[in-house]
Simulated scan of single mutants.
Amino acid sequence: MATDRRGFCDCLRKTLFRGHLTTAQLKGLEAILDGWEALPETARAKAGGDDALAYILATAFHETAATMQPVRETLAPSDEEAVRRLDRAFAAGRLASVKTPYWRYDADGRTWLGRGFLQLTHRKNYQAMSALTGIDLVADPARAMELHTTVAILIGGMRAGSFTGKSLADYFSGGRADFASARKIINGTDRAALVASYARTFRAALGAGLSPEHGNEYQSAH
């Protein structure tokens, strides 16, 4: 069953987006809904249904600073600026957990800095997502900034447990909806309560109306 996108967006506009949704935010939301609804119904159910979808949306909202568009680490406008910002932070000791600066350009001129909805970092993770999505991110890591590609990484990786070994089904199955613990799919317990609060708001928006006949109503009306 498709989401009634008019009711969904109207609800979000009044809550998380503080009265206004930009064209870019709408496109990001639509892309995630499209990616989710393209999955077989059995796959969506196994992952956790609308509770899992709400958490996917909340994760994108949090990791992109509410833009709902793929972003670079540090929210820099270019790879070059992101590398400069990360180098400055590393030199100042603000990245204590980093032993090797993964963002610095390799011999082939590629940088494995964070990109997309999930801040995909390190060559090995780009390799893993290449295998999962069928998109060659190793040859061209910048493709993680493409909307279609980052949606595939977001949904596919969270379903498969690619990032930490924890998957959506670990927290959203059998009627369980553990929004707080689900942060372990991405980043341990960092900002877990905050992302959980976003997920509950997205879940309420998804419940604003479900209509198989009007799944594209929002798009056609705007």
Rank of each mutant, 00 (worst) to 15 (best):
Asp4Pro: 06
Thr67Gly: 03
Thr23Gln: 14
Leu95Glu: 02
Leu12Arg: 01
Leu206Ser: 04
His214Asp: 12
Thr3Met: 08
Gly28Lys: 00
Ser78Arg: 01
Asp170Cys: 02
Ser173Ile: 02
Ala193Ile: 11
Ile155Glu: 04
Gly28Val: 10
Ile153Met: 11
Ala54Tyr: 01
Arg18Gln: 13
Ala31Val: 06
Ala180Ile: 15
Val195Tyr: 03
Ala180Tyr: 11
Ala177Glu: 00
Met129Ile: 09
Arg183Ile: 02
Gly157Glu: 06
Arg183Leu: 03
Gly209Lys: 10
His20Met: 13
Asn216Pro: 10
Gln69Ile: 10
Thr15Lys: 12
Arg13Pro: 04
Leu137Pro: 09
Cys9Thr: 15
Gly19Lys: 01
Glu146Trp: 11
Arg200Phe: 03
Thr22Ser: 15
Arg44Tyr: 03
Ala54Glu: 02
Phe202Pro: 02
Lys124Ser: 12
Phe117Asp: 07
Thr149Glu: 11
Ala65Asn: 14
Phe8Pro: 01
Ala58Glu: 00
Thr201Asn: 11
Ala192Ser: 14
Val151Cys: 00
Leu95His: 03
Arg5Cys: 03
Ala182Val: 05
Val83Lys: 01
Leu137Glu: 07
Asp87Gln: 12
Ser130Leu: 04
Leu132Gln: 08
Lys46Val: 12
Glu217Thr: 13
Phe117Glu: 06
Tyr55Trp: 10
Asp4Trp: 13
His20Cys: 14
Ala45Phe: 11
Thr64Cys: 08
Thr111Ile: 04
Asp51Ile: 05
Thr74Met: 03
Val71Cys: 09
Ala199Val: 00
Ile153Ala: 01
Phe61Arg: 07
Thr3Lys: 03
Gly49Asp: 03
Ser167Arg: 14
Asp34Phe: 11
Leu12Ile: 04
Ile186Leu: 11
Glu146Gln: 14
Ala142Met: 11
Arg191Tyr: 15
His148Phe: 14
His122Asp: 01
Ser197Met: 12
Ala58Asn: 07
Glu213Ile: 13
Gly116Met: 04
Pro77Trp: 05
Leu154His: 00
Glu213Ala: 15
Glu213Met: 13
Leu206Lys: 04
Ala199Pro: 00
Leu206Tyr: 08
Thr22Trp: 11
Met145Leu: 15
Glu146Gly: 14
Met1Ala: 15
Thr111Ala: 11
Gln119Cys: 03
Ala169Leu: 09
